[in-house]
């Protein structure tokens, strides 16, 4: 199991990213997943995907 961190008081923002792939026909194109954790209302929001909001 992974040690659980205590998030209280860390402040600031935390960032992580990794590369992934999207398919256009039989071709795989690079896509980057970026995650930022900021203080504020607790929520998980995914942007940049079609079919939600702006589409």
């Amino acid at each position: 199991m992974i040690a659980r961190r205590n998030w209280v008081g860390t402040g600031g923002s935390m960032y992580g990213h990794i590369s992934t792939l999207a398919f256009v026909g039989i071709e795989a194109r690079a896509v980057e997943v970026q995650v930022r954790i900021t203080p504020g209302r607790a929520a998980l929001v995914i942007v940049g995907l079609p079919g939600q909001g702006g589409g």
Binding site: E32, V33, Q34, V35, P39, A42, L44, V45, V47, G48
Partner: peptide, 20 residues
């Protein structure tokens, strides 16, 4: 691991690819 009690934003870039 639990989600932190904070605002987590996930972005997939570039946004114009068919990220389905």
């Amino acid at each position: 691991l639990g989600l932190p009690f904070k605002h987590v934003t996930v972005n997939l870039a570039p946004a114009d690819l068919p990220e389905e």
